[in-house]
Design a protein around this nucleic acid. Structure first.
Lengths: 168, 168
DNA sequence: TATTGTTATACTCTATAACTATA
DNA sequence: TATAGTTATAGAGTATAACAATA
């Protein structure tokens, strides 16, 4: 044990938000490691379970490079949770289809992820939890167009225009 | 524009928290790029400005490997914002000292970072902003021991024990 | 013998360009 | 010619081990 002075920067809301994001992700990471999934594999599985997408579509959803999707789909396919099927109307495209086993894996992973989230937010009561979600939505809605109508069919632009980095 | 279904996972509080953290960090990143600082350089500067630390001390504060601090300090020293000074009581240690120029750089960077934070949180009014900060503190306090008495002298354990990754 | 700082090496992840097959 | 998918290569960032100087 030693005594330190906390720099002002570390006490700002922005830094706390960043730190909370990192720690929340760490909880998710441990769940994903447990399920043998990388973060990108998890996202690909989640997106392709919701609609019929090609690898290019997935790349656009994730704001990432299409070449990074190849290995990801390879791994998911080798595991038997995702399948490449040729689009008969455009034989260049693969339509990615989640298998029955893939849906089971995704359901179990999502359940564990929700549990990890609950554990992370444990210091808050139900009401505070809702408040936090509400505040985050207010902050993020102008930045993530799809959030405005979350959990329904919404418009989304293909690329965000900002620096396309490999984060979900 | 195309229509997509937002997977449930993407609407969870945990994911929003992660996403907010990523976007908040992106704002900070652009400030740091503008100032010619890496994120790690910024943190080293912030920590060493608050107290006298050796490179090992800094590594422990950042929960990162000491070998990564070497290049960081090299860069800061080459820029004239930080200096290595031998500790006369233990000639193995360097005590890292922020120069006058370094303090000016840090002050300017912190000011820009605060502005970026304000811009990021713009959708919230002052009261909501405080609420968010309060909720984040409640969530993080059990996880970050130093937060309990932020902005004062506090006890901190050297290592968090958790997986030591290279994040601030 | 343990610790501080340093260097060198290997490994992971990502970005870029080039290639094929379809349109 | 343009697009979907693939491959190969190079680069950045990180982790690991080994080393010299000091305690």
């Amino acid at each position: 044990m030693e005594v330190v002075t906390v720099p002002d920067v570390m006490a700002s809301t922005g830094y706390l938000l960043f730190k909370a994001g990192v720690l929340a992700q760490r909880g998710l990471d441990s769940v994903l490691t447990e399920m043998g999934l990388s973060y990108r594999e998890f996202l690909v599985l989640a997106f392709t379970s919701a609609e019929e997408l090609s690898q290019q579509d997935v790349a656009r959803r994730l704001s990432t490079d299409p070449t990074l999707i190849v290995n990801t789909v390879d791994a998911l396919e080798a595991r038997g949770v995702l399948e490449r099927t040729r689009d008969p109307r455009d034989r260049r495209r693969y339509v990615l289809v989640v298998t029955a086993e893939g849906r089971k894996l995704l359901a179990k992973t999502a359940k564990l992820a929700a549990a990890a989230e609950g554990e992370f937010l444990a210091p808050l009561d139900d009401d505070e939890c809702r408040q936090l979600g509400c505040l985050l939505r207010t902050v993020l809605t102008p930045k993530l167009s799809w959030l405005a109508e979350a959990e329904t069919d919404v418009d989304v632009e293909a690329g965000t225009g900002t620096n396309a980095r490999a984060n979900g």
